[in-house]
């Protein structure tokens, strides 16, 4: 199943235009696609649909919400957890973003990414471009998280 999703995402990973709209619900980025984004092994945060993975010069925090409204709340809260008051910025493909070249927080629909490191804006854009539309049935990859069974996007299985 993971291979199938990776194939489906190939255009997005290659930087092709993404057809999803702001109201679309994304499933997240397939964990199998993280190496192609130069991201390391993710760590899943207990009790959440969030993971953090090493990135060049820093890390990426990826948070999944059930819908865009919840995603917008998640975006605002995430922005409030950095001690510096961040300016608004732009990230390709994002509905909204704050930060700068070395740290950026961006939202696309129901997903929020926080990127710290080299070329944070470009990394955030690449991740948002790799967001997959929800396939409905998630690939089950329980070994992703030794504590909580999760699907191939890092979301907790209900």
């Amino acid at each position: 199943m993971i291979s199938l999703f990776t194939l489906l995402l190939a255009p997005a990973l290659a930087g092709a235009p993404v057809a999803a709209t702001k109201t679309q619900t994304f499933a997240g980025v397939p964990v199998s696609a993280l190496p192609a984004l130069s991201l390391g092994e993710p760590e899943f945060i207990d009790g959440t649909d969030t993971w953090r993975a090493p990135a060049p010069g820093g890390w990426v925090l990826h948070a999944w919400s059930a819908d865009a409204a919840e995603g917008a709340r998640s975006f605002r809260f995430t922005a409030s957890t950095v001690q510096r008051m961040l300016p608004t910025t732009t990230v390709r493909g994002a509905d909204e973003a704050v930060g700068g070249d070395e740290l950026v927080i961006a939202r696309r629909g129901n997903v929020v990414v926080q990127v710290k490191g080299d070329h944070a804006r470009d990394t955030a854009a690449a991740i948002l471009a790799a967001e997959a539309t929800d396939p409905g049935v998630s690939p089950v990859v329980p070994e992703l998280d030794p504590v909580t069974p999760r699907d191939g996007f890092g979301r907790r299985l209900k």
Partner: peptide
């Protein structure tokens, strides 16, 4: 200290 932004590298506030 993260003098760029004051971001947390190891902590997440669960569910906001």
């Amino acid at each position: 200290y993260d003098t760029v932004s004051g971001a947390s590298a190891y902590t997440v506030y669960v569910q906001g």
